[in-house]
Amino acid sequence: MAKRDYYEVLGVQKGASKDEIKKGYRKLAIQYHPDKNPGDKTAEDKFKEATEAYEVLSDDQKRQIYDQYGHAGLEGMGAGGPGGFDPNAFQGFEDIFGDFSGIFENLFGGGGGGRRRSGGQSSNQGASLRYDLQISFKDAVYGTKAEVQYSRSESCAACKGTGAAGGSGRKMCSTCQGAGQVRRSSGFFSIASPCPSCNGEGTIIENPCRECSGSGTQKKRQKILVTIPAGVEDGKRINIPRQGDAGPNGGPYGDLFVFIRIKPHPYFERNESDLYCAVPISITQAALGAEVTIAALDDKQLKLKIPAGTQNGKLLRIKEEGVPVQGGRKGDLYIKIIVQVPTKLSSKAKALLAEVSSLEGENSNPTPIALSELRS
């Protein structure tokens, strides 16, 4: 059977860069690796085909020959010959995956015995936990303290987190001889994975603690008081150190991440440090001007002066009645004026309005107003 074009195999163009070739090979190697597809001859053939293509196209000299003469030009060079591809080519592939023994770490359950966590943390640190806390709009603006309850793993008091009963200890794992990992060969690969007997620890507990069954931790209900800062925004994450799960073998606790969810307010809205609300007034208050009292978010009674001739939709501002910000200041409170036109009038009210209309005159041919003016 005629061989496919190497560029076609890797899904790249002929002028592809080395990075593009690496990406193409990596995708195929993970997809068709024999350990992921046990007993699948088609997947194994595709894996070998991709590896052969990469072995050639990653080598500048072989790639140049292939580009000029095709498969025939590579005969006798360790690729494209009777034996398929050169297994020794893998000695230079570490630049694709780092430690090549861990290429398929995600597929087969992790890399070697030296387990690590992101951020350089030791593997024996406990898991961090998440708690979603819903608070009121008012509490988000002015700050509060909230009690949260959740379950977490705590270090077992009986064995002090070691998992071993009093007086006993750990012994070397006989499966991995203390290495914490086992290796298995698949063709030309030797792949390391955590030891199934000791879970990569390298040691096993001789006499497990009865209280925690050897885990070193116990699930317990936790109750703490969380301080919510004034002005907190929806979705904000508050980090509380060492309030997550206890680490194995007496390792340090993880963190608790409290995510803030803010309930909408029926009247107020927020834009950064400013608050907004809408207040209805009568047509006479709008025309003649007035002073009204409105309730602020903190229930304080505020005096608001309505200038004579105020139009519907007018924004009025009360300084420093908004959201607290750094430095002890506050944002502003903006009030949108809604002029309410009465739907029912008494006979006397109608007569009075008719008189006002006669005195002021009515425009029976009004000029349209630009919509952009209404959005300002």
Rank of each mutant, 00 (worst) to 15 (best):
G11E: 01
G11R: 01
Q13K: 14
K18Y: 06
K18T: 11
D19N: 06
L28H: 11
I30L: 10
D35P: 12
D40H: 06
K41F: 05
K46Y: 14
K48V: 14
E49C: 02
E49T: 01
T51F: 15
E52W: 05
E52N: 12
A53P: 10
Y54T: 11
V56H: 02
V56I: 03
S58Q: 04
Q64H: 01
Q68I: 04
G78N: 04
G78H: 03
G81Q: 06
G83T: 02
G84L: 10
D86G: 08
F90M: 13
G98M: 05
G98Y: 04
D99M: 09
S101M: 08
G102S: 13
I103L: 09
N106D: 06
L107R: 00
F108G: 04
G109S: 14
G109Y: 12
G113S: 14
R116G: 08
G120I: 02
Q121N: 07
S123M: 06
G126M: 07
R130G: 03
R130E: 05
I135A: 00
F137Q: 00
G143A: 02
T144V: 00
S151P: 03
S151C: 03
C156Q: 04
K160L: 08
G166T: 10
G166V: 08
G167F: 10
K171M: 13
C176H: 00
Q177A: 15
R184V: 05
S190P: 11
A192K: 07
P194R: 15
C195T: 10
C198Q: 03
G200Q: 02
G202E: 10
C209Q: 10
E211M: 01
S215N: 11
R221Q: 11
Q222S: 13
I224S: 05
P229M: 13
A230Y: 03
V232Q: 06
D234R: 03
K236S: 12
R237T: 14
G244T: 14
P248M: 12
P248I: 15
G251Q: 03
G254D: 09
F257N: 08
R261V: 03
P264I: 07
E272N: 09
Y276H: 01
Y276E: 00
C277W: 01
P280D: 00
S282R: 00
A286P: 08
A287G: 14
A290Y: 11
V292D: 13
T293V: 15
A295C: 08
A295D: 13
A296F: 04
L297W: 02
K305P: 06
G309C: 13
L315I: 15
E320F: 12
E321K: 15
G322D: 08
G322W: 07
G322V: 07
V323Q: 06
V325M: 12
V325T: 15
Q326P: 15
G327F: 07
R329Q: 13
G331K: 05
G331V: 09
L333W: 05
I337Y: 01
I338S: 03
V339K: 07
P342E: 06
T343H: 13
S347N: 05
K350V: 11
L353R: 11
S357H: 08
G361M: 07
G361H: 13
N363S: 12
S364G: 07
N365Q: 12
N365P: 08
A370D: 11
A370V: 11
S376M: 05
